[in-house]
Design a protein around this nucleic acid. Sequence first.
DNA 1: AGTTGTGTTGCATTACGTGCAACAGCCATT
DNA 2: AATGGCTGTTGCACGTAATGCAACACAACT
Lengths: 262, 262
Amino acid sequence: MSQTVDRALSILPLLAEGPANLEQVASRLGVHKSTALRLLRTLHEHGIVYRQQDQRYRLGARLFALAQEAVENLDVREIAHPHLAELNEKCGHTVHLAVYEENEVLYIDKVESRYPVRMYSRIGKPVAITVAAVAKLLLADLPEPERRAVAERLDYPMYTSRSTPNAAAFLKELATVREQGWATDLGGHEESINCIGAPIRGADGRAVAACSVSAPNVVVTADELLTLLPLLRRTAGAISAEYSGTAHTPEKPHPSQKEDRS
Amino acid sequence: MSQTVDRALSILPLLAEGPANLEQVASRLGVHKSTALRLLRTLHEHGIVYRQQDQRYRLGARLFALAQEAVENLDVREIAHPHLAELNEKCGHTVHLAVYEENEVLYIDKVESRYPVRMYSRIGKPVAITVAAVAKLLLADLPEPERRAVAERLDYPMYTSRSTPNAAAFLKELATVREQGWATDLGGHEESINCIGAPIRGADGRAVAACSVSAPNVVVTADELLTLLPLLRRTAGAISAEYSGTAHTPEKPHPSQKEDRS
DNA sequence: AGTTGTGTTGCATTACGTGCAACAGCCATT
DNA sequence: AATGGCTGTTGCACGTAATGCAACACAACT
């Protein structure tokens, strides 16, 4: 909408990839050097970008501080964390927390597996939206027209032979997920990694986040992983209860909580 | 420098304080509603701000994603190297850079001593984790439960009579290191070699790496080595500042600013 | 009904961002 | 030293694109 701001903001993902000098920024933006310079200067004044000694630009401290505040405002994370840690404690696998925002699903928290073989993922990284269990859960919860609209405009990369191939299949999968209240990703993203997920719901019943347990099948088979489903769903239920304030005073958590059927 | 971008960026700290609606943003920026709307829309398109269901704006999770990606692509080693070279230039001794990873501390860079007597070490090699100054610094920075857990499961080989003998002694040492912000290894690994270290901290204050100066006492005594501490700590501070991108122009007062050119 | 309080849109006016071209450093070559 | 290439910086004239205004839309109130 605003060309100048649009250009300035387009610099950020570019610099997130790594340091770049003025000319690189200018050419990737498709603008004249002097224009890029002024944009960078403005970003610099706000501390969003930083200039290192070799004169190249990078994202700066202010952006990190803002990001920190942004994630702190997502208070699901704070509430969920101890539950996720406890879940990890019990099962030993990698646990993720994700939210949906603006056509993307992002990991916002992670507790690492205790096993030596770990899956690669990164907090803040957009997930493979067409296959990840957490993505299915969050999209399944969107109102029907929006869900359809999103599904239609997505790409369906075939990460593996078991990846979701197209919008129709995806919508069908979302219906199933919506029905059963949990989701899986069995080798849909990486051949050897399986994943199960459950939704975290706010007071109004909408899914505000989703959590998942992931494990490579050299550690546990898909079937074994599925036996953790009740535990996972109890955890998600406990987080939901605490988040929506329907459970107890935040002072003394009450671990036992019945899972609810939808 | 660029008014439009300047205004757009001024919205971010404002939203960091908490969600705000259009009018609040407009008035605090000192611009017309329609102007604020366009700026917010542009920020929104880039996922920097998010619009919650009550129509108020808040910082978006995308910011977090950007920051996360940036730190992942940040190379401590690249940033630190010139500083380490300069440090070596000034004191002449061997300088090391190390990081903590998966229960190990690894050397990732080294600038050789200019003296003929050198200590043996190799980039990529795990350090003696119970005695090395860099290891103490990195472990001292772990959250308490993990620090304890790691300390408990380590072996405590007696390389010399001054090696750390057991977990209790190690934890005590870590507390001291944490307190004072620097660490030493006085003949704990090799009888005749002393070492001092300082932490390198990222934007969030966590130690991302540590650097050290090592010298055999045939070249300098332990006391003489300790006189280099201020220099070492300044170096570590400079690397931290550059790594975390801390350098932007301090003053950014109120929305009603005239353009000031210099 | 009206009334306030929002967010949104179209449009004229001109401020402001733009690209250009010339300049200034800084390093390698010669 | 002098040269040439490379990159960042500055001043300026031009015209795009951002601005504020006023009218509109759509709630949620009274």
